[in-house]
């Protein structure tokens, strides 16, 4: 079944949320997974949905050797000591 734009955003958010603390997901992991399930979508749709999550502050880009899409958090390095 085709996903609406809003549903796609929520779908991606849930993927990021489910992976939180277990696995870091790159933007390409997200579009590859989404396109596998929803072949009617294209990569641009997924990128736009990720953009919406980032611009809305629900997800952030992180960099730990590679760039990932994650839930916002206070990083360990920012703490004193």
């Amino acid at each position: 079944m085709a996903l609406s734009k809003a549903e796609l955003v929520e779908h991606i958010y849930k993927m990021v949320e489910a992976a939180s603390g277990k696995r870091q997901l790159k933007a390409s992991d997200l579009w590859k997974a989404v396109l596998k399930e929803h072949s009617e979508l294209d990569k641009k749709d997924v990128q736009t949905a990720i953009k919406e999550l980032i611009d809305g502050g629900r997800c952030v880009y992180t960099y730990f050797g590679g760039s990932y899409v994650e839930l916002p958090r206070v990083e360990a390095a920012a703490k004193k000591g």
Partner: peptide, 13 residues
Amino acid sequence: KHGGIVGVLGYGS
């Protein structure tokens, strides 16, 4: 220490 999260809103670089 390496910081991997700080940034400005909307940008990942």
